[in-house]
């Protein structure tokens, strides 16, 4: 009987410890939840009121990643078309290299370029480190494999069949190539959008090459990372909402266009 009582006391104690711990966790959780809700409210206010630091990071992100994407288009689209359309020796290897580089880690790329661009590095003379141009170059290198691979695939999907079709309808070689390009165009536009999205959403390159300097190299992702570590959640949430909106809106519009 005595033993039973002792046991039940022990059980009670354990139970009360459990209850107390769970209350603490609950408190922590509810604290966090209310902070998120507060953060969301503030974030929406920041966006609506057109807060300067929100606008600054947003426009710089669009400018930097947009420039990188435009720049990459110049060489990646022709290269992708070449790989997808022409049969030349070593084509598979070239394609394999670009495919392998699709998953390039942004910090790795950031580090390599940092070493190249730093004062004592081989390209230090350019004085480019911690400028928006450094981020543009870094992101351009990052998204080149995406645009090349996707463009090559888009062309390959339609190439032999559409080419034969155009030819049998009387097209010359160059007219047939144009028909192939036209058929692949929606997928190529998708490749450009995917590249832009990858650029605007990456952190490693922008952080390591830009240095997150306020008013100069601060972009959406670097600001989000910084403000989160500072505990300044409102701004971080506001910028995340904008980043998601940009990425989703672009993908949505492209998909709609592709279906049309």
């Amino acid at each position: 009987m005595g033993q039973n009582v002792q046991l039940s006391i022990a059980e009670n104690t354990q139970n009360s410890i459990k209850t107390r711990t769970s209350i603490i966790i609950e408190n922590g959780r509810s604290h966090m939840v209310s902070e998120i809700i507060e953060g969301l409210k503030h974030a929406i206010n920041l966006i609506i009121s057109g807060d300067p630091s929100v606008l600054d990071a947003t426009f710089r992100s669009i400018y930097v990643s947009g420039s990188a994407t435009l720049l990459v288009t110049v060489w990646s689209i022709p290269l992708g078309i070449l790989i997808g359309y022409k049969k030349f020796p070593g084509r598979r290897i070239v394609k394999g290299i670009f495919n392998a580089m699709l998953g390039m880690p942004t910090v790795g790329l950031g580090l390599i370029l940092y070493l190249m661009l730093s004062r004592s590095g081989p390209l230090g003379i350019l004085r480019m480190l911690y400028t928006p141009y450094a981020i543009i170059i870094g992101q351009a290198i990052l998204i080149t494999p995406i645009m090349v691979s996707f463009t090559a695939n888009a062309i390959e999907d339609v190439a032999p069949e559409v080419k034969d079709l155009a030819k049998t309808l009387g097209a010359s070689e160059s007219q047939a190539s144009l028909a192939v390009f036209k058929e692949a165009l929606p997928s190529i536009i998708l490749a450009i959008v995917a590249s832009f999205n990858r650029a605007i959403a990456e952190l490693g390159v922008a952080l390591m090459l830009g240095g997150n300097i306020s008013g100069l190299t601060r972009v959406l992702t670097t600001t989000i990372a910084l403000e989160t570590t500072r505990g300044n959640f409102e701004l971080a949430i506001a910028l995340t909402i904008i980043l998601l909106l940009i990425v989703f809106a672009l993908s949505f519009v492209t998909n709609m266009l592709k279906r049309e």
């Binding site: 069949e161 559409v162 034969d164 079709l165 030819k167 049998t168 309808l169 009387g170 010359s172 028909a179 036209k182 058929e183 929606p186």
Partner: peptide, 19 residues
């Protein structure tokens, strides 16, 4: 062969239409 291409037209087994 372009001489022949202007006179013979083929319809392929796998239907392809331009988008």
């Amino acid at each position: 062969s372009s001489f022949i291409r202007q006179r013979c037209t083929m319809v392929f087994q796998r239907t392809i239409v331009f988008n």
